[in-house]
Amino acid sequence: MTRALINAPKTARRGEIVEIRAMLAHPMETGFRTGTMGKAIPRDIINRFVCTWNGEEIFSADLFPAIAANPYLAFTAVATESGTIAFAWTGDDGETRTAETEITVT
């Protein structure tokens, strides 16, 4: 189950610059820490984030172990057409967590 907080406007004027913010609940375990009995805790991070607007990629990022838990990304885009803004976070576990939000451009 994806636990994410998405903040993007519901409506925008054509040509307007909108800010999109996305935060995913994730421990971002670095792989450098040790747990009980000094055993290394295996690395488990989100390593790739992609945001698409109606299927077209508008922003992506590679993430690394130094990024804190619950990675938070904020970026801007120019509103061109109504549709779906989709978010995908891919982790070391190979799983992709997704979320999406609708926007109406007038």
Partner: peptide
């Protein structure tokens, strides 16, 4: 900002 406060995940859970 509730959208940038990671504590909100605990509240939602």
């Amino acid at each position: 900002d509730d959208m940038s406060n990671p504590g909100m995940f605990a509240v939602l859970d």
